[in-house]
């Protein structure tokens, strides 16, 4: 959503003007002129949304004939991973070094979040058995949270590229060129919500499913598969219920994946539409309303980013707890 202006000018001719690569509103006026000039290629909210919510291959990669291309979401996931390592490894050192003194702001915040996942999620759902799952739940929570939040963060690559173009250090990009030919800065921080794709949320939910099955078998043995039907069900009903309960396990995991995906996509779509109105209508009244509305939605999205990470992890923990004991 931070590169609205670049998309507004679908014409390569427009790129001769420095204003065309503008990322933010300060160069609105010249851009608007361009749009007016190229009225035949009208601004399309649909293409704006499509562009921002769609993944794109940045570096094609085939491994044994299998498409393992590095896409925008893959790069963002790596940035998330890097941030997690950059935050939690030093935090662990801080905490260990000063474990008996008053925690500082940074280690205190990390400790609070770790305590939140540990006590508020693992211990509350699984009790003492939850201890083993804490590292997994922590990683899952922060992986989703950071992915969600980075989706709200401006694509740094685009900002860097904009500055580079302004200072004449880089050539303006061709908006119609394939993403694989995008400038390196854009490829390094493409700015997309990793969790806004079913492949990503599905993979995470799949791992959750695996954990559910593994702990089910670890705690109940092979009986886990039989015990998914609640106790005290008469035999004829049991036959009817077992398939439902069995499919239910997968449904729950699927719901995990879709819930996260839908929440992340819907919020971004709303933001894009609100901001798209500005370019669609080019009217100060609409622009003001859109601005106020999108700031509000952005705040809400920050909450949703946290909430969805929490819900995903909490439900995973609940399903794992459910698999540990017969109910």
């Amino acid at each position: 959503m931070f590169s609205l202006l670049t998309q507004m000018i679908p014409n390569s001719e427009a790129h001769t003007s420095p204003a065309t690569d503008a990322v933010h509103g300060e160069v609105l006026a010249p851009a608007v002129e361009h749009v007016a000039h190229h009225a035949e290629e009208a601004f399309s909210v649909t293409s704006l949304i499509t562009h921002h919510l769609s993944d794109a291959v940045l570096w094609p990669l085939q491994i044994a004939g299998f498409d393992m291309s590095i896409t925008k979401r893959v790069v963002m996931m790596w940035i998330v991973s890097f941030l997690m390592l950059a935050i939690f490894i030093p935090a662990a050192r801080f905490i260990v070094r000063k474990v008996y003194s008053r925690p500082g702001r940074f280690s205190g915040a990390v400790e609070m979040l770790v305590g939140f996942v540990r006590n508020g999620i693992a211990a509350d759902t699984m009790g003492k058995d939850g201890k083993v799952y804490v590292p997994y739940l922590l990683t899952l929570f922060f992986f989703i949270l950071f992915s969600n939040l980075l989706g709200l963060f401006p694509p740094m690559g685009e900002l860097v590229h904009f500055v580079a173009v302004q200072t004449g250090m880089a050539a303006p990009m061709d908006a119609h060129a394939p993403a694989t030919e995008a400038p390196l800065a854009l490829k390094l921080w493409p700015g997309i919500t990793s969790t806004g794709d079913l492949s990503v949320t599905g993979a995470l939910a799949g791992i959750s499913l695996l954990v559910i099955f593994v702990s089910g078998f670890a705690f109940q043995g092979i009986g886990f598969i039989k015990n998914i039907v609640p106790k005290g069900i008469p035999a004829p009903l049991w036959i009817l219920m077992w398939p439902l309960e069995f499919i239910g396990i997968f449904t729950k995991a699927f719901a995990l994946a879709v819930r996260l995906l839908a929440n992340m996509t819907a919020g971004h779509m709303l933001l894009l539409v609100l901001m798209g109105f500005i370019f669609q209508y080019q009217n100060y009244g609409v622009a003001t309303a859109s601005y106020v509305g999108s700031v509000g939605i952005f705040m809400l999205e920050l909450l949703v980013a946290f909430l969805q990470a929490y819900i995903f992890v909490l439900l995973t923990a609940l399903f794992v707890a459910g698999a540990q004991h017969r109910h």
Partner: peptide, 12 residues
């Protein structure tokens, strides 16, 4: 996208 799915699993 199966490639993305696998990348997610590997990264995570």
């Amino acid at each position: 996208n199966p490639g993305l799915l696998i990348w997610t699993a590997i990264t995570f």
